[in-house]
Design a protein around this nucleic acid. Sequence first.
DNA 1: AGGTTCACG
DNA 2: ACGTACGTGAACCTC
Length: 882
Amino acid sequence: MSKLIIVDGNSIANRAFYALPLLSNAEGLHTNAVYGVTTMLLKLLEEEKPTHFLFAFDAGKVTFRHADYKEYKAGRAKTPPELSEQWPLIKELVAAFNIQQFELEGYEADDIIGTLTRMADEEKMETLVVTGDKDMLQLASEHVKIALTIRRGISEMEVYGPEQIQEKYGLKPLQIIDMKGLMGDASDNIPGVPGIGEKTALKLLHEYGSVENVLEHAPSIKGKMGERLVAHAEDARLSKELATIYREVPLSLTWDDLKFEGIDEERTAALFKRLEFKSLLERLNLSASAQVSEQTLEIPVQIVQEQDLSALLGKLDEVRAVHVEVLGDNPHHGEVLGIAFAFEASAMYVGFETLMSEEGRPLREWLEDEGTAKTIYDAHRVHLALAWQGIKLRGTAFDVHLAAYVLDPSQSNQSLGDLMRRFGLPTLPEDEEIFGKGAKFRIPELEVYSSYLGRKAYAISQLRQPMHDELEKTGMNELYYDLELKLSRVLAEMELTGIKVKSEELERFGEELKERIREIEQEIYDLAGTEFNIGSPKQLGEILFEKLNLPVIKKTKTGYSTDVEVLERLAPYHEIAAKVVEYRQLTKLQSTYVEGLLKEIRPETGKIHTYYRQTIAATGRLSSQYPNLQNIPIRLEEGRLIRRAFVPSEEGWYILAADYSQIELRVLAHISQDERLMEAFRQNMDIHTKTAMDVFGVAADEVDANMRRQAKAVNFGIVYGISDYGLSQNLHIPRKEAAAFIEAYFNVFQGVRRYMDEIVKSAKQDGYVSTLLNRRRYLPEINASNYNRRSFAERTAMNTPIQGTAADIIKLAMVKLAERMTDEGLRSRMLLQVHDELVFEVPPEELEVMKQLVPEVMENAIALDVPLKAEVSWGTDWYEAK
DNA sequence: AGGTTCACG
DNA sequence: ACGTACGTGAACCTC
């Protein structure tokens, strides 16, 4: 059976452009619209399997519609240059896909599509029109369906035939034209009748059927609407005419011209490569076709067996880089496949068995030797994996992975292939191409992976110098060598130490939770009158909003929203809402914190070993995985009890916690040099109360709890890069009031206002912002023409130096503390970092020393123009240390 | 695999 | 008119 797809090229490209972030390739060409169009095309090909395909484009600025109405499409914003430059690429893409494209001077894509769908109707050709333009619904018929992109998205679509249009609007397809005649269309500058929107237009059409009939009855329609209809009758008629798609364009196309017989793989691969659509290349399995022109790394790799290890041992001093392949996501599981050594123009590979053999001992000693400087990729991960095999990695002099993060912390992919490409060096495959991923993971033949790992080691050796130079050039040498590289070892040691968690404590707590969950579950079923899956937002939505008819507060992409905020607003209507909130709290505790943590306890030691990720967060913060120990409950007492299970690993020891007080606002005071804010901290005032005094203009004793709460929200907002909307949402107040708060704040803290203005300005000029220790974050969207993207980048520009400097400071404190603790021969151990807090386990005889040392080092990690303050607490478990 | 929700700073 | 608070990770549901 034949099936034709027609794409409304201009409409879809526009949608794609505004739906996706402004990507660009190495040439500096923007690629987001092309990318969006590509993913949409691939989806269509896969799901619809068309036999015929056409891409229709608008041509020329003036169409026949301008003859009727010269204001047609006037006042429409100019196409941004970032989109214009993508047109040739989109046309190239369509050509590479072997899809026919068509445009005709003087006509819009709509009219070409209108004409083709008329022909399709006549010949009963199944046709799908893909567009973002609702007007096209007028073309729907028995054989012609219209796929509309949903909202601002691109690959999500809703398909409309006459029945769906009837269902949604209660109209026949052709009546869509009447609807637009009444409503008009601001984007095409079609006037319509003022004051009539979609709702009113539909009401009128349900009663009268067409524009003509509405106008005929206009004099008898009461009120303002009747008057308007009479006054603007001519506008309505003209608007209807403009909205009517012309279906008699002289087309020279035959069905044969539109036949689709598969894409041109080579041409597509070449284009994807130029556009850097890597994931798509892989998805289409075009990598092979694409690599013809890219130079790949080729060097001889020798596989070293136990009996010929001496060849390697004899030239260990010539090793330029070493690569240890760690399998799996969690390095604490310690799976090491093998190890590769790079030399000047070759590499050697040693399998794990060989490394661990008797003959491998000198190799292991070399790895443990502080004195031999090693260049490596992700020393932190390697350190952990080797440690679990009994090998202590020492002497990491350069870590390519960490360097890549420091150079650009926003890059999510820091693979060696990527880095080589970025530095213009011959590249190599991704891990996934060699090993597969997920369920398809498998270890290939020795020859295949040893060659790959040898090339990895060689790539690492090649990257060291250029990356070092780049760090130097960008002024990030100190940050890299003196902070991040040192920290990576401190982190690995903390993680290997681990923290003791009492499983009996968790299990006991879990039993209590289970009981309460059962009760609440039953109460919810009783209130709902039926049993259902409370954990399914979809089913819960159906119960709340369809069965119980509660008001819909907000929607998500896929249906009703049922988040806490919604449930809290539903609470006055129905008891069930509060029960669901409680159910969620308890099940969260049960599944994430009781069962989740229990799974991570090592039975041999009763400890949990998290994995801090040093190269994830764009601001410079750490993140924590397997499990995440940076989000253990504290805000609600019920959840806080989880912390009772976190205990010292030795009898009689203490848990000691120290946290920075208001570090972000202190950092803000320093970098903004705001006199009032600095003074407040020098006086060691309660900053939220102080803010309330200044913003509301009252004395200290006049600040009530509510004023302090609001001031606190303003302070948070300031740190996040404030917007009146965000603050209004947070405080549940009208946006105008929020705006007034912000204005009042800035009037008092003028230095802060100056900082916010200047940081945005400098970001626009330089394309990046920096922290106090010179950590950079690039903000490519800071000059975007799209308001949302630009605003987002502006808020990031305001927030990152604050959050990032705070991260720099605690990292510095960690490195210094680790040194001090070693120097002073303390047995205490650093266990956890939670952004502004450090957690230790401390033997009783060191409690006094640590209570003094920890805050002292934290407070003096760096000298700011305001004091830093760290508060210590201790107890027999983490709960008590509050 | 992506979306929703919710835990933390 | 637009539609956002900054930074993370994990569990669960749905497709």
